[in-house]
């Protein structure tokens, strides 16, 4: 056949689009207002694609403060210098805005105080708000 795409076109035309319309089918006029509406329950958000395996997924880092012994090994290996040491408490503070989600700090932590979470919708208007700083 000279133009094999024709058949595929017709098939696809009557099929549901492949795209997952996240967060809404058409871009809302104001994203901020849309998110506020979603919080109030006025608008509905189209869910993102599900996480395939929660165990291996690398989302927002989780920090168990009590387990941390302040050895600073994570600070040594962190490639993007996202972790800060709090001297007086001997604990750490992680800036998610700088984190590259490599989970290297998880591997080196001697007490398993760090682990990768499942949260990945981390867009924000400030780099240092509560959601983007883990301590």
């Amino acid at each position: 056949m000279m133009f094999p795409m024709f058949k595929q076109l017709i098939v696809q035309m009557f099929r549901k689009p492949f795209t997952n319309p996240f967060p809404a089918k058409y871009a809302p006029k104001s994203m901020k207002k849309f998110m506020e509406d979603v919080e109030k329950g006025k608008a509905k958000i189209n869910p993102p694609v599900e996480i395939p395996d929660e165990e291996t997924f690398r989302g927002r880092i989780l920090y168990d403060r009590d387990k941390c012994i302040g050895c600073q090994l994570c600070i040594k290996v962190c490639p993007s210098k996202a972790i800060e040491f709090k001297k007086e408490e001997k604990k750490i503070r992680i800036y998610i805005g700088r984190c590259i989600f490599c989970s290297q700090c998880n591997d080196i932590c001697p007490t398993n105080a760090l682990s990768m979470g499942n949260e990945f919708l981390l867009a924000s208007d400030s780099k240092v708000n509560d959601e983007l700083v883990v301590e």
Binding site: P52, D53, T56, F57, R58, I100, F101, C102, S103, Q104
Partner: peptide
């Protein structure tokens, strides 16, 4: 890409290699 996300935890950057081996096993 879905398989990469499943196996490695992220779609693009795999962060799997380490000196002397790999960091995560294939389950």
């Amino acid at each position: 890409m879905d398989v990469l996300e499943l196996v490695n935890g992220n779609r693009v950057t795999k962060s799997i290699i380490m000196y002397g081996g790999v960091r995560r096993d294939i389950k």
